[in-house]
């Protein structure tokens, strides 16, 4: 007999198509899982309004659960409460760092206009002497930074709250 706990464990096998090192559970986009005899309902929330990964995540979840023998899965999208980077798990943050993406620094970049942005340590050499190249990066959830010491350009998973 499959339980909701089993479903959560299965979902650890679904990765974010844009940042494959993270699972959808690490990312915090799975809000609830509920199971009845006929139907498994999974509620997900998007990271950003236009995140193109959501559709893929939905399909991946349905495909995976089918492989696990769950025939009827419904994936629902909710916008409330709005996703925040606080929902990234600690495990997820560590995986990001190892992958070369600086995890969110727990603080929204509150800098006013040209003021100095949040210090983001370099995921490669750990130096805190880094700079922001652009507030916008390779995906909606990332900004583009560079390390002033090792010169490595890197993605920063920007804080959103």
């Amino acid at each position: 007999m499959v339980t909701e706990k089993d479903i959560w464990a299965y979902l650890e096998e679904v990765s974010d198509p844009e940042i494959p090192v993270l699972t959808v559970v690490d990312l915090g986009v799975i809000r609830t899982v509920s199971l009845t005899d006929e139907l498994c309902t999974i509620v997900i929330t998007p990271t950003y309004s236009g995140c193109p990964a959501m559709k893929v995540i939905e399909e991946d979840i349905i495909t995976l659960l089918k492989e696990k023998g769950i025939q009827n899965t419904k994936v629902e999208l909710t916008l409330f409460p709005a996703w925040t980077t606080d929902w990234l798990t600690e495990n997820g943050k560590n995986k990001l760092r190892e992958y070369g993406i600086a995890p969110p620094e727990n603080e929204v970049d509150k800098s006013v206009l040209f003021a100095e942005p949040t210090v983001v340590p370099c995921p490669l050499c750990k130096s805190r002497n880094t700079r922001m190249i652009s507030q916008f990066g390779s995906t909606a959830c990332k900004a583009h930074h560079q390390c002033n010491d090792c010169l490595e350009p890197f993605d920063y998973f920007k804080c959103l709250k």
Binding site: Y48, S49, G50, P52, G137
Partner: peptide, 8 residues
């Protein structure tokens, strides 16, 4: 990116 947010 801004365009994508707006279309989202």
């Amino acid at each position: 990116n801004i365009s994508l947010d707006l279309i989202g």
